[in-house]
């Protein structure tokens, strides 16, 4: 009675801003128009969705005909660039209501842009944004630290991490340092 292949929602990966900022490699899994697009994170896992928690420090309304919002969200390691347009109505309405500064949680899809002068920008197209509290932010730092360390421990043993090694030449020690520094900023 249950279908053989049940739809599985893509998990939202936990990633620090400084790692997401380095992300450059994007691929499509399958030839279909609806096939999911993934990025390979430098610590070696594919990601079609991310979950981030940080402080919304700035939001900007842009566009005349097609209004969209941009936001900057800061975590202990750097800044995420988040956008929400008319294709993400829920996130756009939520973002429109939130006044910075505020602790926010964002679920969204990572996407890559290359500017005309060749620099690559990573942003997150938000699916939802909600106001959270400081404790949730701290929990997210722990959660993201744990998952980043788990990925580093498995580095070199999975296909995705070998791909990451090839694309980025990832040095696990640098990411351990990033994790350590992020954790050090959580106040007891």
């Amino acid at each position: 009675m249950t279908p053989q292949t049940q739809f599985e929602r893509e998990p939202a990966r936990r990633v620090f801003a400084s790692e997401l900022r380095e992300t450059r490699y994007q691929f499509k899994d399958g030839d279909d128009e609806k096939s999911p697009t993934y990025v390979i994170l430098p610590t070696g896992i594919r990601s079609n969705r991310v979950f981030i928690v940080g402080t919304l420090t700035e939001k900007l309304r842009q566009g005349d005909q097609n209004i969209f919002y941009r936001g900057r969200i800061v975590d202990p390691t750097g800044t995420f660039f988040v956008m929400a347009g008319s294709y993400q109505p829920e996130a756009m309405q939520q973002l429109a209501r939130i006044e910075p500064p505020a602790f926010v949680a964002v679920v969204g899809k990572p996407s890559l842009y290359t500017t005309p002068d060749g620099t690559c920008l990573v942003s997150v197209r938000a699916e939802s944004i909600s106001i959270v509290d400081r404790e949730t932010r701290d929990l997210w730092v722990l959660d993201t630290a744990r998952e980043t360390l788990d990925r580093l421990d498995a580095f070199g043993t999975t296909d995705d991490s070998r791909k990451a090694q090839e694309e980025y030449g990832t040095q696990p020690a640098i990411y351990r340092k990033i994790v350590y520094d992020a954790l050090s900023q959580v106040q007891l």
Binding site: Q6, E135, A145, L149, R176, Y180, L183
Partner: peptide, 29 residues
């Protein structure tokens, strides 16, 4: 494929987890 929750509680921040993760991140590098 769905969890029918019989309990659902907010996760609390535990300082000992922070300490353990700091050790894990620092110790191995």
């Amino acid at each position: 494929g769905r969890l029918l929750a019989s309990s659902c509680t907010p996760v609390a921040f535990k300082p000992e987890e922070l300490a353990a993760l700091l050790n894990r991140a620092g110790g191995e590098s």
